[in-house]
């Protein structure tokens, strides 16, 4: 049809010029990458040196939640901001249940959702010594939420709004609270007291994983809960 015809359209003058420019840029950048001497990691030594003080064995987790914990704190806030933006723009659209959910789909959700929660918890716990952590666990939790959203479970319509809001801010506030408490006790923002780093990181990761999972699922739902729904629950 017309779409396939459109795809075969020849490029006009400006687009050819742009193509030439992009190719030149890629070639130039490729030459830079090629001529850069073999990567000599500068910070590996520094991280390895401080590893034992971080309280965790995985270097990536140590960087994320201890040495550069400030970045991660702001990153969690970015996720929260995205949900706030989404909620202030549109309402989530839940179609009225037209037919019964097929038993196969229902069975799959019943089997998969608990396993996904278990895997998420395992990933968060694993973050202290191997690859894993709050974001990986949160992504699995979010996927479980998306699975339930696409199944259009009727139970999802009856979730009150307040717990959702509390769940969204729980992780970021917990993280910020720990950061402030550390500021009071040790004088540094997110400067964990000696020996307490390990379990503090695990607590923060657990709280953040729950919030991140909820955030991702709500971003997929694409908007705040129905208005009539809020009225019904907050008369």
């Amino acid at each position: 049809m017309s779409r396939t015809g459109k795809n075969h359209k020849r490029l006009d003058g400006f687009q050819r010029l742009l193509l030439l420019f992009v190719i030149c840029m890629v070639v130039l950048l490729g030459y830079i990458i090629w001529s850069t001497p073999g990567s000599k990691p500068v910070l590996t030594g520094a991280v390895a040196q401080m590893q034992e003080y971080s309280g965790v064995e995985s270097p990536v987790t140590a960087v994320l939640l201890n040495f550069r914990g400030y970045d991660t704190l702001l990153e969690v806030m970015v996720l929260l901001l995205a949900v706030i933006g989404t909620w202030s723009l549109t309402e989530a659209f839940f179609p009225v249940q037209r037919s019964e959910i097929s038993p196969v789909q229902m069975g799959a959700v019943r089997l998969l959702a608990p396993v996904m929660c278990l895997v998420a918890a395992y990933l968060v716990w694993q973050g202290s010594h191997l690859a894993g952590g709050a974001f990986q666990g949160g992504a699995i939790l979010g996927a479980a939420g998306v699975l339930m959203l696409v199944t259009e479970l009727p139970a999802l319509r009856t979730i009150p709004v307040l717990p959702l809001r509390i769940g969204l801010v729980f992780g970021p506030l917990f993280f910020a609270g720990i950061a402030l408490i550390c500021l009071l006790f040790t004088g540094d923002l997110l400067g964990y007291p000696k020996g307490a780093g390990g379990w503090l990181i695990l607590l923060i990761e657990t709280a953040c994983a729950i919030s991140i999972g909820l955030t991702l699922a709500l971003l997929f739902a694409g908007g705040r809960p129905d208005k009539e729904f809020i009225w019904k629950n907050n008369p």
């Binding site: 990567s39 990691p41 910070l43 590996t44 991280v47 390895a48 270097p59 990536v60 140590a62 960087v63 994320l64 550069r68 970045d71 991660t72 990153e75 970015v78 996720l79 901001l81 995205a82 933006g85 989404t86 723009l89 549109t90 952590g133 974001f135 991140i212 955030t215 991702l216 971003l219 997929f220 694409g222 908007g223």
Partner: peptide, 27 residues
């Protein structure tokens, strides 16, 4: 030798930010 954890942590941060940017842009 050991991996360099700093770029890995940066990429992890970047992925999360790009996910939220995509969601907001789509809306």
């Amino acid at each position: 030798g050991e991996i360099d954890p700093v770029p890995h942590a940066m990429v992890l941060t970047g992925i999360v930010v790009s996910v939220s940017v995509t969601a907001l842009a789509l809306i």
